[in-house]
Nucleic acid binder design. Structure first.
Lengths: 136, 136
DNA sequence: TCATTCTGTAATTTTAATTATTACAGTACA
DNA sequence: TGTACTGTAATAATTAAAATTACAGAATGA
């Protein structure tokens, strides 16, 4: 996960938390993050699919937290944006004719699972509310 | 760290461990990993700078472990290839006029430090020798 | 000594991933 | 019914990663 999706999602959620009841538009969110509003809408869409955000369409629409920030763990955000592995694989398949090449990915999997569980455990201990509190 | 550098380095070190005294060429390593030999030489060069690998130049040259596999922790490998943060930032600077944008990266830093320490702790518990043992 | 086979590294090209942009339909409001 | 939003697809631009080319330098050994 080397792209900015986790950072983007945390940023969005932090802004929504600070806004309280107020709805924030993708335009507004995008200008704080400094990325394109379409990307924000995609990311919001993903967060919505994971039950973290809700959106009201149409005029004066925008997004807000789908549940209290105290009930959102940062691990939930990680899970929502997780796509590839934490530590990365090579694009190409290793050589299956080589005893090491044949098994390496399976053993890397085990390793990455361990690493990812450790991260999830840490991020599971922090709520969005706690994180946002640092901004005050 | 979403590129294949960690995977590449682990793969290289595993091959070197299995080879024992024997020197392995970048050509050979590359054919197991299935990447370009120049990339292997760059990665070997990095591992050498971190004291994990040694190389003999010239004809019949190649690489070998600079120290026993039992003395190499996977955390050492992580540190050797670490470049960006574990969970990623946005390319663009957040809006400094926004209270959240102004502080977000600093708070993400704290978060990423926590996550990375957890990973390092886990990878610090596993030696290259233990990892390689799984291939036998 | 000199051809051979390696490494080291710079420069460039190719490929792939990410981000940005454009476009437009659909929704809600006033 | 015009305005201001979201949703999403399609495409373009940008950036990062990987591959390739090229060649100098090191060690070997015939």
């Amino acid at each position: 996960m080397n792209n900015g999706r986790f950072a983007t999602s945390i940023h969005i959620l932090t802004l929504l938390e600070q806004a309280g009841e107020e709805l924030l538009s993708s335009e507004y969110l995008a200008s704080s993050i400094n990325i394109n509003p379409v990307l924000v809408r995609k990311e919001v869409s993903n967060l919505r699919n994971h039950g973290l955000v809700a959106t009201k369409e149409g005029k004066n629409g925008g997004s807000y937290l789908a549940k209290p920030a105290a009930q959102i763990k940062l691990a939930d955000v990680y899970k929502a944006v997780r796509n590839e592995s934490l530590l990365g694989y090579n694009k190409n398949e290793p050589n299956p004719a080589c005893p090491v090449g044949r098994q390496i990915n399976q053993h890397l999997d085990e390793l990455y699972d361990i690493a990812e569980l450790a991260v999830l455990q840490k991020l599971g201990n922090i709520t969005l509310a706690e994180f946002c509190h640092r901004f005050k």
